[in-house]
Design a protein around this nucleic acid. Structure first.
Lengths: 221, 221
DNA sequence: AAACATTTGTCCGTATGTATA
DNA sequence: ATATACATACGGACAAATGTT
C-alpha cells in the first residue's frame, strides 16, 4: 500500500477529520485502489495518529460506500463496476430535477447573476480545454442550484452521488473528460427557465443536461 | 439440510451495533426527546458498555441526522420543525417514483404475488384499525418495490428519509395515524401498472400515493 | 484439532478544549 | 483574567474473532 509522503496536516482540524478527508482523496483519485486492503495500524503510523481516529474515519467511509468492513476480518476499499455508474446517474438526475423545480420557486435576481457567472467560467474552461476546472465549475453550478432549492436532504444525497461519480471518472478515465460546450448551453437554458420561474421546464432541462454524460459513456463502456 | 453459507449471520451483535439500534429506537420513538443532551459516560453505564462503542454509535447517528455533536462541547438529539416534514416528502416522492419506474422494467410474476400479499395485509390492518401494523406493511410495500428496482443508492436514501418520517409521526402525533383505505387502492393500482410494465404510469401513481400523507398534514400543522 | 498470527473490537486512562464562576 | 468543572478527543493496551498452518 503506497502511502504518499507529501501529506500535510491542516493544524486546526481534528485528527479524525484530517484522516477522513485524506483517505477520501486517496480513494477517489485512485491512490488507494479498488479492492485494496486497509490496515488501521499501518495507516495510523503513516498519518501520525492513533488507531482511534483511523477507525472513526473508517466508519464514515463505510457509510459513504468508499470502503467495506468485514467485522473481525478485514477492511477493503470498495470495488467498482463500470456499468454501475448508471445507478448513480438515475437518482442524481431525479434529485437534481427536483432541486431545479424547487429552486424555481425560491430564485432571486442575485442567484441568477451568480449562476451566470459560474456558467461563464465553465464555458471558458471548456473552450480552453481545462477539463479539471470545467468539472469543478460544473459541480459548483449544480451545487448552487441545490443551495437555492434549500433542502438539506437533497443536497446531502446529491453530494454523496457526485463524490462517487468523480471516483468513477478518476478510476476509469484517469481524468475528467466529458464536459462539453453543449453542457454550457444546457446550463444557460436552465438559468433562463429559473429566471422565469418555470419549474417544469427547469426540471426538464436539468434532466436533459444530466443525460448527456451517459451518452458519452455508452461508447466508452 | 444445507446451511446457507453466503448469508453471514450476525450470531452476536457487536456492542456498537446494539448501542446504535437502541439509541435509534429511543430517538425515533421519543424516549430521548428532541434537544436532549446525551452524555456518553452516562449512556455507557446504562447500556453496560464502554464509551468507545457509544462514541462510534454517536458518529453514525450524526450522519443519519438523529443527533448533533458540537466537538469538544456537547452532543444533543436533533430538534424537529413540524414544517420540515415536507422537506422529507419531496425527495422521497421523487426517489420512490423513480424506483417504481425502474421496478416496472425488472418486475417478475413472483414480485407481483409478493406485492399483492403485502397489500392485502395492509388493507386488513387498515380495516381493523391496527395502525402500527398498517404503517409497517406500508413501509414493507415500498421497500419491496425499492428492492425490485435494484438500486442500492435509492434504497439507502429512501430508508434514511423513511426513518425521519417515522420519527416525525411518533414525536408529533404520538402514533401512526394516517394510513387509509385509499392508500391500499393506490397500491393496487401501482401493482397493476407494474404488472403491465407501464413505467410512466407506475411512477405517476406512486407520486400520487405519496402526496396523500401531505394532505393529512395540511390540516394537522 | 489446536495453537498461531493477524486484524478488528473494546476498555479505560489521559490530554485537550470549552463554558462558567 | 484565572481557575475550575465537565465533556469530548485521543492514545495505547488488552480481548475477541477469524483464517491458517
Amino acid at each position: 500500500m503506497p502511502i504518499p509522503t507529501d501529506y500535510t496536516s491542516p493544524a486546526r482540524l481534528s485528527a479524525k477529520e484530517r484522516t477522513l478527508s485524506q483517505l477520501q482523496k486517496w480513494i477517489i483519485d485512485g491512490t488507494l485502489q479498488p479492492g485494496e486492503k486497509l490496515n488501521d495500524s499501518e495507516l495510523s503510523e503513516a498519518l501520525g495518529v492513533s488507531r482511534t481516529p483511523i477507525r472513526e474515519a473508517f466508519q464514515l467511509l463505510e457509510v459513504q460506500g468508499l470502503i467495506e468492513t468485514f467485522p473481525g476480518k478485514e477492511t477493503r476499499v470498495t470495488t467498482l463496476e463500470k456499468e454501475d455508474i448508471i445507478k448513480l446517474y438515475a437518482p442524481l438526475t431525479a434529485l437534481q430535477a427536483l432541486a431545479a423545480e424547487l429552486a424555481a420557486a425560491n430564485i432571486q435576481p442575485e442567484h441568477i447573476k451568480q449562476l451566470r457567472a459560474i456558467n461563464a467560467g465553465f464555458g471558458e474552461s471548456v473552450k480552453k480545454e481545462q477539463l479539471y476546472e470545467a468539472m469543478e465549475l460544473d459541480e459548483e453550478f449544480h451545487e448552487t442550484i441545490l443551495h437555492i432549492a434549500n433542502n438539506q436532504h437533497i443536497s446531502t444525497f446529491c453530494s454523496s452521488l457526485q463524490m462517487h461519480i468523480r471516483r468513477y471518472k478518476y478510476i476509469f478515465f484517469k481524468r475528467p473528460n466529458w464536459e462539453s460546450k453543449a453542457a454550457a448551453e444546457d446550463h444557460e437554458a436552465i438559468i433562463n427557465a429559473l429566471e422565469s420561474r418555470n419549474a417544469e421546464e427547469a426540471a426538464r432541462l436539468m434532466k436533459h443536461n444530466l443525460v448527456r454524460p451517459l451518452e458519452h459513456l455508452d461508447h466508452m463502456l
